[in-house]
């Protein structure tokens, strides 16, 4: 499966990346080289995961929780994990260029 420069431009739009002409050319070449390698996956012809597994590979691992219910994070209130908390709000650093004193 190969992709064209037009495909690369469209993917760039989806990914919100502005690509200049040189980048489009280079990425078209790079992505085709990578996808050629990736296409070997299809040679496997896997349509189903192995019998004793679910879709995710990690499901083959023992249950990390060992059957024990962990604490439900939703039972924590934000004040328990907020770095800073004041009057029901998270306190975060001011964004660049914003002077916090101007908001007051």
């Amino acid at each position: 499966m190969s992709i064209s420069a037009e495909d690369v431009k469209r993917i760039g739009e989806l990914a919100r990346l502005h690509l200049d002409t040189d980048e489009v050319e280079r990425l078209t070449s790079d992505l085709n080289a990578i996808l050629q390698h990736v296409d070997s996956l299809r040679d496997l012809g896997l349509t189903e995961p192995p019998e004793d597994s679910l879709q995710s590979g990690s499901r083959l691992a023992p249950d990390p929780q060992g059957g024990v219910e962990g604490p439900d994070k939703l039972h924590e209130t934000p004040v328990d994990f907020a770095p800073e908390w004041q009057e029901g709000f998270f306190i975060v650093p001011a964004p660049p260029g914003v002077n916090p004193s101007e908001d007051q």
Binding site: L14, A15, V38, L44, P50
Partner: peptide
């Protein structure tokens, strides 16, 4: 990001991402 966006895009999702997930399960197996 470009490669990841491509393999998740409509029409290619199962050909790439779905196949890779099944391969991952086989590797773990």
């Amino acid at each position: 990001i470009m490669l990841g966006t491509y393999v998740l895009s409509s029409g290619y999702y199962d050909a790439y991402y779905g196949t890779a997930q099944r391969t991952r399960a086989s590797i773990a197996h």
